[in-house]
Design a protein around this nucleic acid. Structure first.
Length: 413
RNA sequence: GUGAUUGUAGCUCAGUUGGUUAGAGCGCCUGAUUGUGGUUCAGGAGGCCGCGGGUUCAAAUCCCGUCUUUCACCCCA
């Protein structure tokens, strides 16, 4: 382990080869699939006005209250984005009509000042989409379908989609009141945290990890039962659409998603390979008010680090995506080295993966590198070949080799 | 923020109740008769023992602080 001088900050990491290859696979496949669903890529700044996050995520949420990298370098309070939706909607709201009916995706770093643990970093990466427009259950269902499509394409098995509804804003009070009233008789049996939560955030009692609390929660009506007819119908329509598309989901009324902007459908995808933070993705319908505009939309975010952990559990690892193939040029002597520099330029111009030693070294050492590089062929040149205008081409898998003319090798590359 | 936990070679890790030149495996480099890799054999390089204090004749080892790792709570992807 290197000394601290060379370590990144707590909760942040350098991503290098070979790990980087699984990142690239994930991103490349995601871009292709997003394209097929009509999503355009959007890159927003890492920094936004603090108010952008406060107004959308909610200034009483923990994410905003205690997990943001916020500072004031000049006149304005600014913050590093803790999630992607707020900035995306800030952008779309500024695009007028067009922004109200848009589909965008992002692949970006997010920052939250928290204590790192399994599946949780201070700088982490999310792949997300946002689709703005009228609230339509089919849009929510399609969003889930897209997400499931991604997981399949990456080769991720064993994940579970759970869905619920947050209801409309007008449902909030009846739900909270209803749940409180139902819990009241059991107050003494709840854990200490829940005794506090029942007033502060009653929904958090619903997903308390404590077993005895869960027993009580199982006895009382679910949050959904306190919602209006309209909210319940909306959820039913989403579920029906998913059934039509043959997408398996589990309706879990206990699912709670904390950010303020959610309305109606919320969902979460979990995977058993993760620790306590077992969600690889979360999503939902939202309504974000910016200025005079309230932008409705639906979207999701997937935690790339968590996706990678889950993929590894499925036996999908970075080295499977490492670049290989191509050729390795072996030079015997100064003259051959110079000539091979020329040859490398020609091969690379044709897009051939091509490596070589840039100093005179023993053939043995060069062949070792050829082997390690994963090249399919070694192209060997020494005095004799230079004089004859030929090269020796060795097949690294077969071990066989033949002498060919330089022109033929370049032409067939 | 709370409670645990970790730090020794590029990587994975040994290192006895404090005691002399801190070890192994893998990897890397060199070689095994002229210009041939992956296997084998031989040799070699590479360590502020996370950092800073303290105790001691003596600290990788004990104490304190600090940073970092991992895990859980809170909360979230």
């Amino acid at each position: 382990m290197a000394s601290n001088e060379f370590q990144p900050l707590q909760g942040m990491s350098d991503i290098n080869a070979p790990e980087i290859y699984i990142w690239r696979m994930i991103e490349e496949k995601a871009r292709t699939i997003f394209n097929s669903y009509g999503y355009e890529e959007l890159r927003t700044p890492v920094l936004e006005k603090l108010s952008v996050f406060k107004r959308s995520i909610g200034d009483t949420t923990d994410v905003v209250k205690k997990e943001m990298y916020a500072f004031k370098p000049g006149k304005h309070d600014i913050a590093m984005r803790p999630e992607g939706t707020a900035g995306t909607i800030r952008h779309l709201a500024g695009r007028g009509e067009e922004g109200l009916n848009a589909r965008v995706f992002y692949i970006a770093s997010m920052f939250r000042y928290e204590r790192p643990q399994a599946g949780r970093k201070r700088q982490f990466h999310q792949i997300g989409v946002e689709a703005t427009g009228e609230a339509n259950p089919l849009a929510d269902a399609e969003c889930i379908a897209l997400q499931q499509h991604l997981l399949e394409e990456w080769g991720l098995h064993g994940s579970k989609i759970q869905i619920s509804t947050r209801g409309m804003p007008s449902d909030r009070k009846p739900v909270a009141d209803g749940l409180r009233a139902a819990l009241q008789p059991h107050l003494a049996e709840l854990c200490d945290d829940c005794q506090r939560r029942i007033d502060e955030n009653v929904l958090r009692v619903i997903d308390c990890k404590n077993e005895s609390c869960q027993k009580i929660v199982d006895q009382i009506p679910t949050a959904i039962e306190f919602m209006s007819e309209g909210s319940r119908t909306y959820l039913d329509q989403v579920i029906q659409a998913l059934e039509i598309m043959d997408i398996e989901v589990e309706v879990n009324p206990k699912l709670v998603r904390g950010l303020d902007y959610y309305v109606h459908t919320v969902w979460e995808i979990t995977h058993g390979a993760l620790g306590a933070q077992n969600a690889i993705a979360g999503g939902g319908r939202y309504e974000i008010a910016l200025g005079k505009k309230a932008v409705p939309g639906v979207g999701f975010a997937m935690g790339m680090e968590r996706v990678i952990t889950s993929l590894e559990a499925c036996g999908i690892t970075a080295d499977q995506f490492a670049p290989k193939g191509g050729v390795w040029l072996v030079s015997l002597g100064e003259a051959a080295l110079a000539e091979n520099m020329k040859l490398a330029r020609k091969l690379r111009a044709k897009g051939v993966r091509c490596g070589m030693e840039l100093e005179v070294k023993s053939m043995k050492a060069q062949m070792r590198k050829a082997n390690r590089s994963g090249a399919e062929k070694a192209i060997i040149r020494g005095e004799d070949e230079l004089a004859a205008g030929t090269v020796v081409v060795k097949d690294m898998n077969e071990g066989s080799q033949e002498e060919l003319s330089l022109e033929d090798v370049i032409r067939d590359a």
